[in-house]
Design a protein around this nucleic acid. Structure first.
Length: 293
DNA sequence: CTGTCGTTC
DNA sequence: GAACGACAG
């Protein structure tokens, strides 16, 4: 009996240790300024008022140490995924490639599997990128849950979108931390299998028409949203989920946050004071980007 | 030319 | 596990 309790305690400690030492998770506890939420990954707000009620199946909130999302059970893809990235999130861990269903979805819902995208002409496109979560194995592994994936046209995913992801990481290495949120809009994309518009994969997963992303750039520092001012750089893009997306670099797809709000009906950056939101959401980023990334 | 990143099969 | 494409350096 004694041994059992002892071995259970050890098992518990082993289970909890990586979790408790995970900087992403720990930081979520002292993001004092994040008002309605304690998770650093959605510190700037919950753009669709997603909830953890299973009744709210098409706007179902999932909070993970690595990222947060609103899941759409009708479309079988997330409405949006939100995360925070800083230098400590990027480490030595190899890409795990363990694409798999997300067991944390309610048991009676359809669980998208890794094979649902097979031969569809669309990539299993990460929302929170693998390369933004390489500090610990479990953090990288978490990005391969299918609730973090959308059917993404290969040229969108591997070229234009990836260049923006790389550019974001270069901003982190230059001494910034980023609050990122991205998601989908509409239905019907053009993948690599045929030149026609595809509305759903054979497995029933919705193919979005557009992908969008919003990046708030802050110099690395204490996790305090009061540092966000009218001068804070915000990059927002909206691009087609098609193969010819890559005809232009991501810079050409820059828009205002306002325009994505009008399109989607979401309310972004809602934890920032209104007067500041007003200014930074109406601008279109025009910072020159030297390299072709 | 090698390394990185995101993929497919 | 092998191979691919698009870069960056």
């Amino acid at each position: 009996m004694k041994n059992r309790i002892l071995s259970f305690s050890i098992a518990l400690a082993i289970t909890l240790l990586p979790f408790l030492s995970n900087p992403v998770f720990c930081q979520s506890h002292h993001s004092a300024k994040a008002t309605s939420t304690t998770n650093v990954n959605m510190a700037l707000g919950n753009p669709s008022n997603a909830t953890t009620s299973t009744v709210n199946a098409n706007n179902y909130l999932m909070q993970k140490p690595q990222y947060c999302l609103s899941y759409n059970n009708k479309n079988h893809i997330p409405n949006w995924v939100s995360w925070h990235v800083q230098t400590s999130d990027i480490g030595p861990v190899d890409r795990k490639n363990d694409f798999r269903p997300d067991d944390l979805l309610p048991a009676n819902w359809y669980h998208v599997s890794s094979t649902d995208y097979i031969r569809s002409g669309f990539d299993r496109g990460h929302q929170c990128p693998s390369a933004d979560r390489t500090s610990y194995e479990e953090n990288n592994s978490a990005t391969f849950l299918m609730t973090n994936m959308i059917p993404q046209a290969p040229n969108n995913n591997r070229i234009t979108w990836m260049h923006l992801e790389s550019y974001c990481r270069s901003l982190v290495f230059q001494g910034n931390e980023l609050y990122i949120i991205c998601g989908v809009y509409g239905q019907g994309g053009i993948g690599s299998a045929k030149p026609d518009i595809v509305r759903t994969l054979q497995s029933g997963v919705t193919v979005p028409a557009q992908t969008w992303k919003i990046i708030v750039v802050l110099p690395s520092g204490e996790n305090d949203l009061s540092r966000i001012t009218t001068q804070t750089r915000v990059i927002a893009v909206l691009m087609p989920n098609t193969q010819d997306c890559s005809k232009h670099p991501w810079q050409n797809y820059r828009v205002s946050v306002d325009s994505i709000e009008h399109l989607s009906g979401f309310n972004f950056l809602s934890n920032i004071p209104e007067n500041i939101q007003k200014v930074i959401e109406s601008k279109v980023d025009n910072t020159p980007v030297n390299k072709q990334i």
